[in-house]
């Protein structure tokens, strides 16, 4: 390598890093807030991992009101952030409204849905029902009482989608199993009400549940706490929550929002957009968490059964019905 080449290489590298600094990615969290130990925090973890590995920096912000969604998107696009990554389905419409005004900015949304996707927008969805199916199987295998519980956050289709996969999984193991499903509330406060979560968990324990799956953001922390206090098992959601109560949290349904954010930030301005990306078991977008905190709870037999089901879901031999397919669930009534 000649001196010239070296110099050119250095200049090119400098130019590249300078360009990257101009186009830092931005991350916008939904109303639940950055540190919800769950969905938004998973996005934050992905961004932190990216920042640590690349030494890059990013801008992030938490929402306070509905009108701020579009405002945040516009302000970040105008300030030159690229890509602008958002978490939560509520960003889909605001993105649709602003995307055309900023054709050079790439917008990413996790969980959203749009009938037509603009050129510079990437929508990422997770097959939560598949992951929930697997933890439903684990719950049914662990349960001795024949009753398992589900505590959801707000009663919206997304959470029914989680509950539906869970109930199908539980019934695949034990067709006679009793699945109790409760939603915390009908206002956004339902995402952050650990006290109510604890009360619902106690009520479900009173009805005989000995494994409870919480898909309720911050409310789930109350469910996990109660399960630990009452000596039953719980299942965490989105992030790996096994470490919160080792020995009591049976497993966590992983939704790898962190990977999605990490990859979007890594791709940076070269991100492929204009499409819908679905991450399921095959792409390891969803799954169940096994680590040192719960390895003693999950027996080899349980692992074998779940892994077998996982392979069958990927190959298409098992069809986990999505709640969205016709807005109803074959295994559970709401």
């Amino acid at each position: 390598m000649t001196f010239m080449q070296k110099t050119l290489g250095t200049v090119a590298a400098l130019a590249l890093s300078a360009g990257a600094a101009l186009a830092d990615p931005a991350l916008v969290y939904d109303l639940g807030g950055k540190f919800d130990k769950s969905f938004n925090e998973a996005a934050y973890n992905g961004a932190e991992r990216w920042a640590k590995e690349t030494g890059g920096s990013y801008k992030d912000i938490e929402m306070q009101s509905e009108a701020q969604r579009e405002q945040a998107l516009r302000r970040f696009a105008e300030a030159g952030y690229n890509p602008v990554i958002t978490t939560g389905f509520s960003f889909a419409e605001p993105i649709k409204n602003v995307a055309a005004d900023y054709p050079d900015t790439k917008f990413v949304n996790v969980d959203g849905f749009l009938p037509e996707i603009p050129e510079n927008v990437l929508l990422i969805n997770f097959q939560e029902h598949q992951g929930s199916y697997l933890v439903g199987m684990l719950a049914a295998m662990e349960s001795k009482s024949g009753t398992v519980g589900f505590v959801g956050g707000m009663d919206i289709p997304l959470i029914r989608h989680f509950a539906c996969g869970y109930a199908q999984g539980a019934k695949a193991v034990n067709p006679d199993i009793n699945v109790i499903a409760n939603m915390t509330g009908t206002t956004p406060a339902a995402w952050n009400d650990p006290v109510k979560g604890a009360e619902l968990a106690k009520a479900q324990i009173g009805q005989g549940a000995d494994v409870i799956y919480a898909a309720a953001g911050g409310t789930g922390l109350g469910v996990l706490q109660t399960a630990a206090d009452e000596g039953i098992y719980s299942i965490g959601v989105d992030s790996n929550q096994n470490h919160l109560h080792p020995g009591s949290v049976l497993t966590s349904m992983l939704k790898r929002v962190d990977n999605a954010v990490y990859e979007a930030m890594t791709a940076g301005a070269d991100l492929e957009t204009g499409k819908f990306m679905t991450l399921g078991l095959a792409e390891e977008g969803v799954g169940y968490a096994v680590d040192e905190n719960n390895s003693e709870l999950i027996t080899d037999e349980m692992t074998a059964t779940v892994e077998d089901a996982k392979a069958k879901i990927i190959s298409g031999d098992i069809d986990v019905v999505s709640y969205y397919a016709n807005d109803s669930c074959p295994a559970l009534d709401f």
Partner: peptide, 12 residues
């Protein structure tokens, strides 16, 4: 959730 949501939409 049940009446006015367009088909396929996830957001209520």
């Amino acid at each position: 959730v049940n009446l006015l949501r367009p088909a396929g939409a996830m957001e209520p």
